[in-house]
Design a binder for these strands. Structure first.
Lengths: 216, 216
DNA sequence: ATTAAGAGTTCGGACTGCCTAAAATTTATT
DNA sequence: AATAAATTTTAGGCAGTCCGAACTCTTAAT
């Protein structure tokens, strides 16, 4: 296993490669490599029985590939939790560090970190941390953009994207805030919400709202 | 900079490449690579002005190469400290984990870790942790093997070697123990010492004694 | 001083993972 | 259904780092 192979498995997982077949292009875009490189690497992962590849149709994870991928997600999110909780990193700064550390993290280290952090369930931007067996409860996929006016919801998760997190740290919206939809501006304009606890009105851009997940 | 280049710089440093010229063979042995690979990599490091190479004579670090090397040692030892202090690793288990993590550790992360650990001066086996400017006070090179009978010394540092540390954890000898030399068996036999605090008699093998450093 | 051993260097070859360009296949449009 | 567009695969190359073998240089021993 190499860091790049791990990255391929992880992105296939993140693109939904557990059920769906993922396209070559999605992977190439996600990793920033050429399409030819993807085909080549996928062939290696097929040989290791980590993915299934139907030429021209798509790629998906085997059970074994899924195991690797969830462990990687676990390591990534444990490191993010560590960086925020213990080293006082800002939400928006943890991703690149975790991206590197996850590849050099043994099972033992992951478990020790998990214990040290007292078995966190969620990473700092709300993603579920799989347990050491790779189990995890999937989460809502209700985006803030789909919340109707006057509905009350709780902020659950942000997509782990630097620009988004920087933007959100400006708005003051946080994970676990209870909010109420107030108003959708037309033409992909901002969405206004009100935070229940302090009645603060917060504007969220249309695009950001699609990357914020909530639950009732 | 790649992990392997970093490993080359670090081992040159550890073999004493700040003053002395280090031989190709020492590096090859230390890293477990072929002699030819060393010559080749050294040529690259020369091109980057990180080492000086006099063909057939030896290799030493430039000022720049030394900076890289000390930062690497700093990261390595900070991780070792973290693993022992926070994650309850045993002394003998930290080296391989730190070996991997050090290469994926940004300056910022090293500093955050240093703060979190409250600026430790020494790593778990007694090595000095260089500060963020790469400064560090060099340590004694008086090995336990050279201590005369009846001299009282303090255990300062163990060489960071798995087998040695496993062996030592069996003997019960620890960093900062104050001990007195008792008896040198002839023919490279064990060295007996007595721990002042509890008068425990401890036998240390001849070879191990050469890898334990003490000060008065 | 010569020679043999040891150490260092050079060279050709391998492997990984990337790229670009060309060819093949699928999908979409007319 | 035919063609155009998009996607995927194939093929040939490049860079990094490794190896082993052959050659060169230094050192130690005769």
């Amino acid at each position: 296993m190499t860091p790049m192979k791990e990255d391929y498995l992880k992105i296939i997982f993140e693109l939904g490669g557990v059920q769906k077949k993922i396209s070559n292009k999605q992977i190439a875009l996600g990793l920033g490599v050429a399409a030819g490189s993807v085909t080549e690497m996928i062939a290696k992962l097929v040989a290791e029985k980590l993915v299934i590849h139907e030429p021209y149709a798509g790629i998906s994870l085997t059970k074994q590939g899924l195991r690797f991928a969830t462990q990687l997600v676990r390591k990534h999110r444990l490191w993010e939790s560590f960086l925020v909780q213990k080293l006082n990193y800002g939400l928006q700064d943890v991703h690149p560090e975790a991206e590197l550390l996850e590849h050099e993290t043994s099972q033992r280290l992951a478990n020790a970190l998990d214990t040290f952090l007292e078995h966190p369930k969620y990473c700092p931007h709300g993603g579920v941390i799989p347990d050491s067996d790779g189990k995890y409860n999937d989460i809502s996929h209700l985006s803030l953009a789909d919340v109707k006016d006057d509905e009350k919801v709780t902020v659950e998760r942000f997509i782990d994207n630097h620009e988004l997190l920087v933007y959100l740290s400006g708005t003051g919206l946080h994970i676990n805030d209870k909010i109420k939809g107030l108003h959708h501006d037309p033409f992909e304009g901002p969405i206004q919400v009100i935070r229940m606890i302090d009645q603060a009105k917060i504007d969220i851009s249309y695009k950001a709202a699609h990357n914020i997940f909530v639950h009732y």
